[in-house]
Protein backbone atom coordinates (compact mmCIF):
# COMPACT_ATOMS: atom_id res chain seq x y z
CA UNK A 1 0.00 0.00 0.00
CA UNK A 2 1.19 3.46 -0.71
CA UNK A 3 0.76 6.34 1.63
CA UNK A 4 -1.07 8.56 -0.78
CA UNK A 5 -3.82 6.03 -1.21
CA UNK A 6 -4.60 5.89 2.45
CA UNK A 7 -7.90 7.10 3.71
CA UNK A 8 -7.92 10.46 5.45
CA UNK A 9 -7.35 10.27 9.14
CA UNK A 10 -10.37 10.72 11.25
CA UNK A 11 -10.16 13.23 14.03
CA UNK A 12 -11.44 10.65 16.50
CA UNK A 13 -9.51 7.41 16.62
CA UNK A 14 -11.23 4.51 14.95
CA UNK A 15 -11.50 1.51 17.25
CA UNK A 16 -9.36 -0.84 15.28
CA UNK A 17 -9.42 -4.58 15.23
CA UNK A 18 -6.11 -5.37 16.86
CA UNK A 19 -6.77 -9.07 16.33
CA UNK A 20 -5.53 -11.73 18.63
CA UNK A 21 -3.06 -10.74 21.27
CA UNK A 22 -2.58 -9.86 24.85
CA UNK A 23 -5.00 -7.74 26.81
CA UNK A 24 -2.41 -5.00 26.64
CA UNK A 25 -2.69 -4.96 22.87
CA UNK A 26 -6.49 -5.30 22.87
CA UNK A 27 -6.83 -2.38 25.28
CA UNK A 28 -4.36 -0.29 23.24
CA UNK A 29 -2.26 0.43 26.30
CA UNK A 30 0.60 2.92 25.92
CA UNK A 31 3.26 0.32 25.28
CA UNK A 32 3.03 -3.45 24.85
CA UNK A 33 6.38 -5.20 24.77
CA UNK A 34 4.86 -8.42 23.46
CA UNK A 35 3.68 -6.60 20.31
CA UNK A 36 7.18 -5.36 19.67
CA UNK A 37 8.54 -8.87 20.11
CA UNK A 38 6.09 -10.49 17.74
CA UNK A 39 6.36 -7.72 15.12
CA UNK A 40 10.10 -7.15 15.26
CA UNK A 41 11.02 -9.51 12.45
CA UNK A 42 7.98 -8.82 10.29
CA UNK A 43 7.55 -5.05 10.60
CA UNK A 44 10.05 -3.10 12.66
CA UNK A 45 13.34 -4.65 11.61
CA UNK A 46 12.67 -4.41 7.86
CA UNK A 47 11.49 -0.83 8.33
CA UNK A 48 14.66 0.00 10.28
CA UNK A 49 16.87 -1.52 7.60
CA UNK A 50 15.04 0.36 4.87
CA UNK A 51 15.41 3.52 6.87
CA UNK A 52 19.15 3.01 7.17
CA UNK A 53 19.34 2.39 3.43
CA UNK A 54 17.35 5.50 2.63
CA UNK A 55 19.61 7.55 4.90
CA UNK A 56 22.91 6.11 3.72
CA UNK A 57 22.13 6.53 0.05
CA UNK A 58 20.95 10.10 0.55
CA UNK A 59 23.98 11.10 2.63
CA UNK A 60 26.52 9.42 0.37
CA UNK A 61 25.06 10.92 -2.80
CA UNK A 62 24.53 14.27 -1.10
CA UNK A 63 28.11 14.27 0.15
CA UNK A 64 29.51 13.44 -3.28
CA UNK A 65 27.56 16.28 -4.88
CA UNK A 66 28.36 18.76 -2.13
CA UNK A 67 32.01 17.80 -2.15
CA UNK A 68 32.40 18.51 -5.84
CA UNK A 69 30.41 21.73 -5.56
CA UNK A 70 32.39 22.89 -2.54
CA UNK A 71 35.74 22.16 -4.19
CA UNK A 72 34.57 24.08 -7.24
CA UNK A 73 33.37 27.00 -5.12
CA UNK A 74 36.62 26.93 -3.19
CA UNK A 75 38.55 27.25 -6.43
CA UNK A 76 36.17 29.71 -8.09
CA UNK A 77 34.52 31.70 -5.35
CA UNK A 78 32.09 33.17 -7.83
CA UNK A 79 30.25 29.85 -7.77
CA UNK A 80 29.36 30.14 -4.12
CA UNK A 81 26.38 32.53 -4.27
CA UNK A 82 24.42 30.64 -6.93
CA UNK A 83 25.05 27.24 -5.35
CA UNK A 84 24.26 28.62 -1.92
CA UNK A 85 21.01 30.18 -3.05
CA UNK A 86 19.76 27.09 -4.86
CA UNK A 87 20.76 24.84 -1.96
CA UNK A 88 19.12 27.29 0.43
CA UNK A 89 15.87 27.24 -1.49
CA UNK A 90 15.84 23.44 -1.60
CA UNK A 91 16.56 23.37 2.12
CA UNK A 92 13.72 25.76 2.88
CA UNK A 93 10.98 23.90 1.01
CA UNK A 94 9.02 21.87 3.56
CA UNK A 95 9.79 18.18 3.20
CA UNK A 96 6.22 17.02 2.73
CA UNK A 97 5.76 19.51 -0.10
CA UNK A 98 9.05 18.61 -1.78
CA UNK A 99 8.26 14.90 -1.71
CA UNK A 100 4.90 15.57 -3.32
CA UNK A 101 6.28 18.00 -5.88
CA UNK A 102 8.62 15.27 -7.11
CA UNK A 103 5.79 12.79 -7.68
CA UNK A 104 4.79 14.16 -11.10
CA UNK A 105 8.47 14.00 -12.15
CA UNK A 106 9.83 10.76 -10.75
CA UNK A 107 6.67 9.06 -9.54
CA UNK A 108 5.77 7.39 -6.27
CA UNK A 109 9.21 5.88 -6.04
CA UNK A 110 12.23 5.54 -3.87
CA UNK A 111 13.99 7.75 -6.42
CA UNK A 112 11.68 10.62 -5.55
CA UNK A 113 12.32 10.07 -1.87
CA UNK A 114 16.08 10.01 -2.35
CA UNK A 115 16.12 13.10 -4.54
CA UNK A 116 14.27 15.05 -1.87
CA UNK A 117 16.46 13.70 0.94
CA UNK A 118 19.65 14.44 -1.00
CA UNK A 119 18.51 17.98 -1.63
CA UNK A 120 18.25 18.60 2.12
CA UNK A 121 21.86 17.57 2.69
CA UNK A 122 23.43 19.86 0.11
CA UNK A 123 23.18 23.19 1.91
CA UNK A 124 24.60 21.81 5.14
CA UNK A 125 27.39 19.77 3.58
CA UNK A 126 28.29 22.36 0.97
CA UNK A 127 28.61 25.18 3.47
CA UNK A 128 30.50 23.10 6.00
CA UNK A 129 33.00 21.68 3.52
CA UNK A 130 33.59 25.12 2.04
CA UNK A 131 33.87 26.74 5.45
CA UNK A 132 36.28 24.04 6.60
CA UNK A 133 38.54 24.57 3.61
CA UNK A 134 38.44 28.33 3.97
CA UNK A 135 39.28 28.19 7.64
CA UNK A 136 42.66 26.64 6.94
CA UNK A 137 45.03 29.36 8.14
CA UNK A 138 46.80 31.25 5.36
CA UNK A 139 50.22 30.59 6.88
CA UNK A 140 49.69 26.84 6.76
CA UNK A 141 48.68 27.04 3.13
CA UNK A 142 51.65 29.28 2.47
CA UNK A 143 54.03 26.87 4.15
CA UNK A 144 52.63 23.97 2.12
CA UNK A 145 53.09 25.83 -1.11
CA UNK A 146 56.53 26.99 -0.07
CA UNK A 147 57.67 23.43 0.56
CA UNK A 148 56.72 22.47 -2.97
CA UNK A 149 53.37 20.76 -2.48
CA UNK A 150 51.33 21.06 -5.65
CA UNK A 151 47.88 22.54 -5.44
CA UNK A 152 46.34 19.09 -5.49
CA UNK A 153 48.74 17.78 -2.82
CA UNK A 154 47.99 20.78 -0.65
CA UNK A 155 44.28 20.07 -0.98
CA UNK A 156 44.47 16.37 -0.13
CA UNK A 157 47.27 16.36 2.41
CA UNK A 158 46.70 19.63 4.19
CA UNK A 159 43.46 21.45 3.51
CA UNK A 160 41.00 18.56 3.54
CA UNK A 161 42.46 16.86 6.62
CA UNK A 162 42.36 20.15 8.44
CA UNK A 163 38.79 20.79 7.31
CA UNK A 164 37.76 17.38 8.63
CA UNK A 165 36.28 18.51 11.95
CA UNK A 166 34.02 21.01 10.21
CA UNK A 167 33.14 18.49 7.51
CA UNK A 168 32.23 15.81 10.04
CA UNK A 169 30.19 18.38 11.97
CA UNK A 170 28.26 18.99 8.76
CA UNK A 171 27.87 15.26 8.20
CA UNK A 172 26.40 14.87 11.67
CA UNK A 173 23.76 17.51 10.99
CA UNK A 174 23.07 16.04 7.56
CA UNK A 175 22.68 12.49 8.82
CA UNK A 176 20.40 13.44 11.67
CA UNK A 177 18.32 15.63 9.38
CA UNK A 178 17.94 12.84 6.83
CA UNK A 179 17.02 10.25 9.47
CA UNK A 180 14.30 12.62 10.59
CA UNK A 181 12.99 13.57 7.16
CA UNK A 182 13.11 10.04 5.81
CA UNK A 183 10.12 9.26 8.03
CA UNK A 184 8.14 11.80 6.02
CA UNK A 185 8.99 9.92 2.82
CA UNK A 186 6.24 7.49 3.81
CA UNK A 187 3.77 9.84 2.15
CA UNK A 188 5.15 8.82 -1.23
CA UNK A 189 6.82 5.42 -0.66
CA UNK A 190 5.82 3.00 2.00
CA UNK A 191 9.36 2.41 3.24
CA UNK A 192 11.41 3.11 6.29
CA UNK A 193 10.33 3.77 9.84
CA UNK A 194 7.73 6.20 8.56
CA UNK A 195 5.66 3.16 7.51
CA UNK A 196 4.95 1.77 10.99
CA UNK A 197 4.48 5.31 12.28
CA UNK A 198 1.94 5.98 9.57
CA UNK A 199 0.20 2.68 10.24
CA UNK A 200 0.09 3.51 13.93
CA UNK A 201 -1.36 6.95 13.21
CA UNK A 202 -4.07 5.43 11.05
CA UNK A 203 -5.48 3.24 13.76
CA UNK A 204 -4.09 5.19 16.72
CA UNK A 205 -2.22 2.11 17.86
CA UNK A 206 0.01 3.46 20.59
CA UNK A 207 2.60 0.71 20.86
CA UNK A 208 3.47 0.90 17.18
CA UNK A 209 3.70 4.71 17.31
CA UNK A 210 6.00 4.65 20.29
CA UNK A 211 8.14 1.73 19.13
CA UNK A 212 8.69 3.14 15.63
CA UNK A 213 9.19 6.67 16.94
CA UNK A 214 11.72 5.47 19.50
CA UNK A 215 13.59 3.48 16.87
CA UNK A 216 13.89 6.62 14.74
CA UNK A 217 15.21 8.69 17.62
CA UNK A 218 17.61 5.89 18.55
CA UNK A 219 18.86 5.65 14.99
CA UNK A 220 19.47 9.40 14.84
CA UNK A 221 21.33 9.42 18.14
CA UNK A 222 23.31 6.32 17.24
CA UNK A 223 24.38 7.76 13.87
CA UNK A 224 25.33 11.03 15.52
CA UNK A 225 27.36 9.24 18.17
CA UNK A 226 29.07 7.06 15.58
CA UNK A 227 30.15 10.15 13.67
CA UNK A 228 31.49 11.76 16.83
CA UNK A 229 33.59 8.65 17.39
CA UNK A 230 34.70 8.66 13.76
CA UNK A 231 35.82 12.24 14.15
CA UNK A 232 37.77 11.43 17.31
CA UNK A 233 39.60 8.68 15.46
CA UNK A 234 40.23 10.74 12.34
CA UNK A 235 41.32 13.94 14.02
CA UNK A 236 43.54 13.11 16.99
CA UNK A 237 45.19 16.52 16.74
CA UNK A 238 41.94 18.38 17.32
CA UNK A 239 41.62 16.94 20.82
CA UNK A 240 45.03 18.14 21.92
CA UNK A 241 44.47 21.51 20.35
CA UNK A 242 41.39 22.06 22.44
CA UNK A 243 42.77 20.94 25.76
Amino acid sequence: MSGVLLAPLAAAPVIPDFGRGSTCIRDNKLFCWDWVQSNWGGTLRPALIQHIELTLIAVVVGFAISFVLALAAYRWSRLEPPVGIVAGILYTIPSLALFQLLVPVTGLSRTSAEIALVSYTILILFSNILEGLRNVPADVRDAAEGMGLTRWQTLWRVELPMALPTIVAGLRIAVVTVVSLATVAVFIVNEGLGAPIYAGLQNAFKTELIAAGALTVALALFADGALVLLQRVLTPWARTARS
Binding site: D139, R141, A143, E145, M147, L149, P161, M162
Partner: peptide
Protein backbone atom coordinates in the same frame (compact mmCIF):
# COMPACT_ATOMS: atom_id res chain seq x y z
CA UNK B 1 59.24 23.93 -12.18
CA UNK B 2 58.01 25.84 -9.10
CA UNK B 3 57.10 22.77 -7.04
CA UNK B 4 60.45 21.07 -7.72
CA UNK B 5 62.38 24.24 -7.06
CA UNK B 6 60.63 24.77 -3.72
CA UNK B 7 61.49 21.27 -2.53
CA UNK B 8 65.14 22.23 -2.90
CA UNK B 9 64.76 25.45 -0.96
CA UNK B 10 64.06 25.48 2.76
CA UNK B 11 61.40 28.05 3.62
CA UNK B 12 60.59 29.29 7.11
CA UNK B 13 57.78 31.82 7.36
CA UNK B 14 57.10 34.15 10.23
CA UNK B 15 53.96 32.37 11.41
CA UNK B 16 55.85 29.07 11.01
CA UNK B 17 52.83 27.42 9.38
CA UNK B 18 53.24 24.00 10.95
CA UNK B 19 50.54 21.56 9.90
CA UNK B 20 48.39 21.25 13.02
CA UNK B 21 46.96 17.91 11.90
CA UNK B 22 50.33 16.23 11.68
Amino acid sequence: KPAELRREIGYVIQQIGLFPHQ
